[in-house]
């Protein structure tokens, strides 16, 4: 039996990593909630963000947290261009066609990054990489604490955007009633482009935060797409608080599984949780009940 502090320690680590996961999942959730498009290239966009932060660190020597505005802006523009040039044509197409388009985008991203950066793992060593805060009996890595704070701040910012700006409210109107939004004269196609841009920017920002904790290789994408999905479904598709809750829950359950059972079994926890949620509350823990 491990001392009780051990579990608390793991839980806190899980919460901190979970906030970064939540940041990633919020992007996926926004895109699906508004456009009803499943972004199967979300994990790949995260990886692109990680490489972006790495590049900024290597060339400008900028801390990944400070690189967020740059990387997020680039990813936003990428997202807008992708929506405008490609995905917009498939908005009303059957699901499997959208799926194929995004799988194609994911393949291009992954292998484009592979061609540019090669398959080697890369990381960013910030000066405070090994420093930690001492809170009572616990040691919290600075890196994790900072990235969690940044993630939560960004999620709060998005919340403000969607609730207190005209564009944000207009996007929510599209999500609630697409035809109604068109009838009152909203430029739905433009709003979709912004939405997809925001979703991609979320993935990019999450990439900046994640590169401080794990190494990046071009082929990490698919796993993170799956992770983001799991979180979003558990929390409830289209709900930002749901994505936050789901992210924290997965973060903690992974950390707990790591010490309770074998670390290699840790993702079975997430998938088990996913199956349970799908069966018992298909709309997610905080999702809206639809008829």
């Amino acid at each position: 039996m491990l001392p009780i502090e051990f579990y608390f320690d793991a839980a806190i680590k899980g919460l901190l990593t979970g906030s970064v996961y939540a940041m990633l999942a919020v992007g996926l959730s926004i895109i699906f909630g508004v456009m009803r498009v499943v972004n199967f290239a979300h994990g790949e966009m995260l990886v692109a963000g990680m490489f972006g932060a790495y590049l900024v660190f290597v060339t400008l020597g900028l801390d990944p947290i400070l690189a967020i505005p740059i990387v997020a802006l680039v990813m936003f523009l990428f997202g807008v261009a992708l929506q405008r040039g490609l995905i917009d044509r498939f908005i009303t197409a059957p699901e499997h066609q959208q799926f194929l388009v995004l799988i194609g985008v994911a393949l291009i991203l992954t292998n484009g990054l592979d061609m540019i950066f090669g398959p080697d793992a890369r990381n960013v060593q910030v000066p405070y990489a090994f420093a930690s805060f001492e809170v009572g009996p616990f040691f919290l890595d600075n890196v994790r604490v900072y990235s969690a704070i940044a993630a939560l701040a960004l999620i709060a910012l998005l919340y403000l955007f969607f609730n207190h700006t005209l564009t944000g409210k207009a996007i929510r109107a599209c999500a609630d009633n697409n035809r109604g939004a068109q009838v009152v004269g909203l430029n739905v196609s433009r709003l979709y482009a912004i939405t997809f841009g925001i979703g991609a920017a979320c993935a990019g920002a999450a990439g900046c935060l994640l590169i401080m904790v794990i190494d990046v290789t071009p082929h990490l994408g698919a796993d993170f797409t799956l992770l983001a999905f799991t979180i979003v479904i558990i929390g409830g598709l289209g709900s930002m608080t749901g994505a936050l809750l789901g992210g924290l829950l997965i973060g903690v359950s992974e950390a707990m599984a790591g010490i309770l059972i074998q670390p290699s079994l840790k993702s079975s926890f997430s998938f088990g949780l996913l199956i349970l949620v799908l069966l018992l509350r298909p709309n997610g823990l905080l999702g809206k009940r639809s008829s």
């Binding site: 194929l100 388009v101 799988i103 393949l107 291009i108 484009g112 061609m115 398959p119």
Partner: peptide, 14 residues
């Protein structure tokens, strides 16, 4: 060039 195959594959699919 590693990655060229799947990149082109993705483009062809699109």
């Amino acid at each position: 060039i590693a990655g060229l195959k799947l990149l082109t594959y993705g483009v062809a699919m699109l």
